[in-house]
């Protein structure tokens, strides 16, 4: 089913609400992802950033509202329809999600073998080209267990772009990487996006790296879009949440302490209970 949509946007999220087990994670979220741009979704841990990627990919269904990819409402598609949409997407998972029983070469060749009838010689050339793009052509014979975290992430990126997708989604691409690997991944995201003419959606909480490559940023907090704008807009924002997040302040709208009972009452309450227990034993 095709809805009225802005042709400039490849993905649109419209008044989306999602939750499970009685807890609402998102309430009335609106986002737009213009073609050819790098758009970041940022927010604290547990704010539902990765869930948004899963909603775009059709792995989850919204409770209300809709996600449109190329004008098509994702959750209204049949299984085959969702698979057709996913062929236009590539995704880099947080831990790489490489198939551990396949070599680097076979991992990158996997989507080509599954979705095309290309001859082996062409698959060979394409795989080497993709690996060359991420600087790991020389590592094509290695197994995933022989790769460092950064190398694994780059192989996963080569696999994500194997079929030249229109949309590339990145789930925490910088998490747990050393500064050099982080810089390499950062550069690759921007370069590949521009070279392939794709649209990139980055989910991250690494402010410096994300701001350096994103064209537009959405901040998610409390189930809604708390702020949005270009990296420069957000750097200069006076909104308390954005200020705390961008500058990494310990306390603010996001409190340091998890909600708890009164500290004094809890400490003294224990002594009181222990005293009563001893008295009961003596009686």
């Amino acid at each position: 089913m095709t809805q009225t949509t802005d042709p400039q946007n490849i993905v649109e999220i419209d008044n989306l609400s999602f939750g499970y087990k009685g807890r609402m994670l998102h309430q009335g979220i609106n986002m737009a992802f213009p073609r050819g741009k790098v758009v970041a979704i940022m927010g604290g841990s547990g704010s539902g950033k990765t869930t948004l990627l899963r909603l775009i990919g059709g792995q989850l269904k919204p409770n209300k509202g809709q996600v449109r990819v190329e004008g098509q409402v994702v959750h209204q598609q049949s299984r085959d329809g969702i698979y057709q949409l996913r062929r236009k997407m590539g995704m880099l998972f947080q831990q790489g999600a490489l198939f551990t029983d396949l070599s680097v070469y076979e991992n990158v060749a996997f989507p080509m073998r599954e979705h095309t009838d290309l001859p082996e010689s062409m698959i060979h050339d394409l795989v080497l080209m993709k690996l060359n793009a991420v600087g790991l052509r020389g590592a094509h014979q290695l197994m995933p267990t022989e790769l460092s975290g950064g190398m694994g992430r780059r192989v996963s990126l080569a696999r994500a772009i194997a079929l030249d997708p229109d949309i590339i989604m990145y789930d925490e691409p910088f998490a747990g990487l050393d500064p050099i690997s982080m810089g390499v991944i950062c550069d690759l995201i921007r370069t590949l996006n521009d070279a392939l003419g794709a649209t990139s959606i980055i989910v991250s909480h690494d402010v410096k790296e994300t701001f350096s490559i994103a064209d537009y940023v959405y901040f998610v907090a409390g189930g809604t879009v708390a702020a949005e704008g270009t990296p420069d807009d957000l750097r200069n924002s006076h909104l308390p949440f954005v200020h705390q997040f961008v500058h990494g302040e310990k306390d603010g709208p996001v409190p340091f302490h998890y909600a708890a009972a009164d500290y004094k009452t809890e400490l003294l309450g224990f002594e009181q209970r222990a005293f009563e227990h001893t008295r009961q034993l003596q009686e």
Partner: peptide, 9 residues
């Protein structure tokens, strides 16, 4: 890995 496969259609 299963999620990745799903996302690769």
């Amino acid at each position: 890995q299963l999620s990745a496969m799903e996302m690769m259609a």
